[in-house]
Design a protein around this nucleic acid. Structure first.
Lengths: 187, 187
DNA sequence: GGTTTTGCAATGCGATCGCATCGTAACAGG
DNA sequence: CCTGTTACGATGCGATCGCATTGCAAAACC
């Protein structure tokens, strides 16, 4: 068998280029040619690793979710309250890298409304986040299970809304973080 | 001068068809031919009234904002607290019509990240909503000006996040409304 | 050192796109 | 009736799209 290459590395290069294209031109601006040009590879390579455009876009979505989950897992040895703060603040864009990431994330959120596959990936991630946040809340303070879940949902929904406002520069990152800190601190 | 037609009516028919296409296929699914087919008119007519595709899509955005503002104005003679509740709950999709409207709205929100013209329209609308809500809060209870604005921002951001969750069916409309009512009632 | 299998680059095709252009049917004003 | 203007339907063009196909270079295995 011939030519051993690092498949994961190749796939990652292409997915990263996909994210850049989405961040700059939105999901409507994604074409195999644009992504190939951004990654500095040929269209054929993308076809080889992902098959169709839809499969590529979906892979970009799952990669985004996986990266976020990986970042959260690195906080495993922190206190529950701090982990909760991390989840809330992590998506507020502070620098250009964070802005790119959350821009792509929002693009997928919008796509999920009309795309069943993307919707399923995001729905699973969201339910996971809600359950984990509810767990953190119960670890931090005494609450009923359903009360904690409602709290988690409220905090995450608020974080989403504030993230959007920072994204379109209607709100400063500092203000968003301050509001989230205040809400997390509340009972 | 020839053939007097109701320009506003013609434009409205086309914009409504545009909304249906956006709701069903997302903004990426919008093409002049699709919109023309949905409206039951020719492509030439759309070109005649809107010129380019970008102008059409932007007109759909301003029409959406105008419609929302018109709906709010109809509550002019209600109490401040009730008007505040209206603003918060109005966007939560309860029936199919509401779902279409908010689906289109979210599509524009996502587009605003990469489209300066759409961003400006939505930013203006959002600032107007924030100021108006802050005004309603001060009319309802005793608060400082900046405190009311922060409250308004928090409530609207939460409403956005909850709306999204209802839209992707992660949350029941009733739960979203209940959470918003609770927050509006809070100091 | 052939053989075979993998990893891709290149190319071609049919569909679809936005938009410019052209032609004309309808109708108000003279 | 005639003329001029408006409102549009029809058509065509060049660009771009996703994807299938083809061909070949590189390298593990005999």
């Amino acid at each position: 068998m011939p030519r051993i290459v690092d498949h994961e590395e190749r796939r990652w290069e292409i997915v990263f280029a996909l994210w850049l294209v989405i961040a700059r031109h939105g999901i409507e601006g994604v074409s195999l040619r644009h992504v190939a040009a951004e990654a500095g590879v040929s269209m054929g390579r993308i076809q080889h690793y992902f098959g169709t455009k839809d499969a590529l876009v979906l892979a970009g979505c799952t990669a985004l979710v996986d990266r976020a989950y990986g970042g959260y897992q690195e906080t495993a040895d922190a206190a529950a309250r701090d982990r909760l703060r991390y989840v809330m603040n992590q998506q507020i864009p502070r620098d250009d890298a964070g802005r790119i990431g959350v821009t792509v994330w929002y693009a997928y959120v919008a796509k999920s409304i009309n795309d069943a596959a993307v919707r399923q990936v995001l729905a699973e991630a969201r339910r996971g986040a809600e359950d984990e946040c509810a767990r953190l809340i119960r670890a931090d303070r005494d609450t009923s299970a359903e009360g904690a879940l409602t709290q988690a949902r409220r905090l995450l929904a608020l974080a989403d809304g504030l993230t959007l406002r920072v994204l379109v520069r209607d709100l400063e990152p500092g203000e968003a973080v301050a509001m989230l800190e205040a809400e997390v601190g509340r009972a």
